[in-house]
Computed example of a mutant assay.
Amino acid sequence: MLAGRLHLKERALRMESVDVPEPGPEEVLIKVEAAGVCLSDVHLIEGGLTPRLLGGDVVTLGHETAGTIDRVGDRVEGWKPGDRVLLQAGQRDRLGTVYTRGVDYDGGWAEYTAARADTLVAIPDDLPFEQACIIPDAVSTPWAAITATAQVKAGDPVAVWGVGGLGAHAVQLLRLIGAAPVIAVDPLPAARERALAFGADFALDPGEAGRIRELTGGGLAVAFDFAGVPAVREQALTVLARGGKLILAGIANKPVTISSDSFFNYLKLSIHGHYGSDAEHVEELVRLARQKRLDLAGSISDVLPLADAPAAVERLQSREGNPIRLILRP
């Protein structure tokens, strides 16, 4: 079968012919129907991210995957060939260590992939694979940031810095749960237009961020950094209301600076790190999609053949077309 394999020593993505994986007793073989292309994949290829738990130096990329069950292992119950599923972006071992699909073990940039049965989530027949595959990570990461880390409540004034693949969904999900107003901040006019289309009440250039206190009547309950830029964090801290939270969902690999501890302490502000999501967040989003509360059609910027994975990576690197999510279809 064809697979997109990352050779870590050279940081080279190669489309290669490899054996179809044989599922273990507690695994299923998935015929991949759609796989997302994420900035994390780009960072792995470029060297900004390195697998911590990979047993070797070559891995099939792809942590956003959906497809149909082809075969089931001897000990698998409750699943059968033909079932439509998405795959959680990772799995835990018996000690609780989290292994990430497409990073620490082979992922979905392939015609087939093996998956442990407890990482499957059933998807409804009317949810396209292209939309289902992005729920783990592209949608579940901001959902977990909003509901678990930030614990946003209806009526909370919020702002999202960086309206890319994660930030665009954050805007959509914040509106879904009733945050108000929802403000987007991004230097790109196309990104600001997208934020308004996804439900933002206001979309500002970073140079206009001073308006946030006026637009919210005093400041933000929660600011989300999905850009991973130090200047964003510094700016967001200046427009938080008393008790406000800054959620670091973007990764800058840089120090977090508090310019004034007296201001920070007086307003009782807080900074929270956030990474990924848990299994229940993906399951919640699938239920919302099943009930037609969550529409991800606008998130699919383009669908390309699996063989064009290197071209998809180049498009994401150059931000050609300002994509939300590019999808690979075997």
Rank of each mutant, 00 (worst) to 15 (best):
R293C: 07
G250M: 09
A236M: 10
V182T: 03
P310E: 11
H43K: 13
S270I: 12
E284K: 15
K9G: 15
I247V: 11
N253I: 13
T149C: 13
L188I: 14
V59M: 11
S259C: 14
V103Y: 01
H281M: 13
G55F: 03
D118F: 10
R52A: 02
A154I: 03
A307P: 12
L328I: 14
I258T: 13
S299G: 07
A209R: 09
M15C: 04
V72K: 13
R84S: 13
L285K: 11
E314W: 14
V229G: 05
D106R: 08
Y99I: 00
G210M: 05
G48A: 15
R116K: 05
I135R: 00
V303I: 15
L87R: 01
P330G: 07
A117F: 07
P330A: 04
I30M: 10
A223L: 05
L87E: 02
V160H: 00
P23E: 04
Q291M: 12
Q151P: 15
H63A: 05
E77N: 11
A184Q: 08
V103T: 06
G243N: 10
D41W: 13
R5E: 13
C38A: 14
F129R: 12
A148I: 06
P189E: 15
A115D: 09
A122R: 14
A231W: 09
S17Y: 13
D74V: 06
A227F: 14
K153V: 11
G276W: 12
H274W: 02
A191T: 13
K9F: 01
